[in-house]
Each structure stands twice: as C-alpha cells, then as structure tokens.
Simulated scan of single mutants.
Amino acid sequence: MVLSMDRWVDKVAIVTGASSGIGKAIAERLVEQGMKVVGVARRKDRLDELAQKTSGKKGKLYPIQGDVTKEEDIMRVFKWAKDNLGPVHVLVNNAGVLCNSAIEDGKTEDWLQTINVNVVGLCMGTREAIKDMKEHNIDGHIFNINSVAGHFVFNYPKLEIYTATKYAVTSLTASMRQQLANQKSKIRLTSISPGLVDTEIVAGLDLSITTGGPPSLKSEDIADAIEYALSTPPHVQVHEIMIWPTGALSS
C-alpha cells in the first residue's frame, strides 16, 4: 500500500475546534501538506495567530469564527468555503467539550451544552459535508475525533454525560458509514479515538499530567493519525484508530 497525500494538495478541509489542542495540530498539519484549511472556532484571535504562524507553508489557513452548536454558523462556514475556496473534500469534526458534571448533582445546561457540541454539532457538520461532496461528486473523507471513552466506561467521577456523547459518536460514525456504503458512495468515514491527550480540555479534571500524573498523548500524535488515514489509497477505508499513551491502564 502506497501512502501519499498528493491527491489532497490544494483541496479544501474544514477543521472545527481549530484554535487549540488537537484541532490546532490537525489544521497546522493539513496546511503543511498543502491543503486549504478552514479553521473554525469561537476564539477568532487564536485562529488568526495560527494563520500567521502557518503563513508561508505549502497550504493556507483561513480563520473563520463559528460555534458548532449554532446551525446558522455551520451553514455560514460551509457557504463561505464553497464560495471562496471550492467544495469541501475533508471534514474534521474535532470541536468538543468535556462535561465534568455528574448525573446525581450536575446542571442540565452543562449536559445540554456537551450534547450539542459533541453530538449535534458533529451531525450538522457531517450533513453539510456529505451534501457538498455528493453535489460535486467528491470522494471525500470525514473524521470524527472520538475518544477511548466512546468504547469503554471508565471508573472516573462525573464523566457520565461525556462518555455517553462519545458512545454516540462511535454509533453515528458506524451508522453513517453503512448508509453511505448502501448508497455506493466512496466517501470515507474514520473515527479517531485517543486516550488522555495533554490539552486544555482536561484542565478541569483532577489530573496532574506534567508532575507524575497518568501517561498522556500529544496533540501531534492525533494529527499523525489523521495524516495516515488520509494518505491511504481511495480503496482503503480506515474505520477506527484507537491511540493509547504507552503505559496507560486501559479498561
């Protein structure tokens, strides 16, 4: 199997949650590989910094402010990309929140926000990407940044809602892949499920990653997985990549 990113050069990618952590690393990597990357996040200033950092690379980053829980923002991002760059070839559903709010005493608004970001926002982005790919006869690639928590229930407090949303991502990815296969579509769907990654999203947990805490991954490790799956030939579909830090205790 020959691995190559050549067919994605000058093609359009949309990456949500691109202002920090995993999304930032993925957006930067795709720019380095020559893609036109629409980086989407609520924090426009951070996107602007990333655009400046990646200027002069093979591709280019286009910073667009947007909230994945707002349908009008999703529609605006896809319309802007199509009108200014062309149809989308790659979508990375990366935006996510870690709900540290238990069922027994948590806040409903925290649960709803987590579900809206991790599940509903992902569905809206996927819907628009598939619509765009089909309209332009593009054999594109959609990535859902999942979690090992989408496959195992961990004995850790206050993660019930987060885990439920990631199980939903696992199910949605498999279901959509089956539906596309039934339609004879060549659009590929890949779920990337990391273990603990040293990013801002885990800041609210009682973990000490840098001072003797549990083993962790780097955001760049997830970008590596995206690049690998994209590099495979069109007849190869990588369904799932699960990435654990070396030494981590799996479920």
Score class of each variant (00 low, 15 high):
Ala95Glu: 08
Ser191Gly: 12
Lys24Ile: 00
Lys53Ile: 04
Ile187Lys: 10
Gly21Ser: 08
Lys36Gly: 02
Lys134Pro: 06
Asp6Leu: 10
Tyr228Cys: 04
Val117Gly: 09
Val236Trp: 01
Asp105Tyr: 09
Asn182Trp: 13
Leu30Glu: 10
Leu249Thr: 14
Ser191Lys: 03
Glu160Trp: 00
Ser101His: 02
Lys24Asp: 13
Met124His: 12
Ser19Val: 02
Leu180Tyr: 04
Gly21Tyr: 12
Gly140Arg: 11
Thr114Gln: 05
Ser19Trp: 05
Glu49Ala: 14
Gln178Cys: 07
Thr232Ala: 12
Ser175Asp: 10
Val12Gln: 09
Asp105Gly: 13
Val153Arg: 13
Gly150Pro: 07
Thr16His: 09
Ser231Tyr: 01
Ser20Ile: 07
Ala168Lys: 08
Arg188Asn: 03
Asn118Glu: 01
Gly121Gln: 03
Thr173Trp: 03
Gly125Cys: 15
Leu172Tyr: 15
Glu32Asp: 14
His239Pro: 00
Gly56Lys: 09
Trp8Asp: 06
Tyr62Thr: 07
Lys82Phe: 08
Thr170Lys: 14
Gln52Ile: 00
Gly17Asn: 10
Ser175His: 01
Gly34Phe: 04
Ser171Asn: 10
Gly121Phe: 09
Lys44Val: 14
Thr108Lys: 12
Glu109Gly: 01
Gly247Thr: 03
Leu180Ser: 08
Asn118Val: 05
Glu72Cys: 11
Leu3Asp: 01
Ala102Leu: 05
Ile103Arg: 06
His136Leu: 09
Asp10Leu: 07
Ile145Asp: 11
Val2Cys: 06
Lys218Phe: 10
Asp10Glu: 15
Asn146His: 07
Thr114Arg: 02
Asn118Gln: 09
Lys70Asp: 14
Arg177Trp: 08
Ser219Pro: 14
Trp80Ala: 13
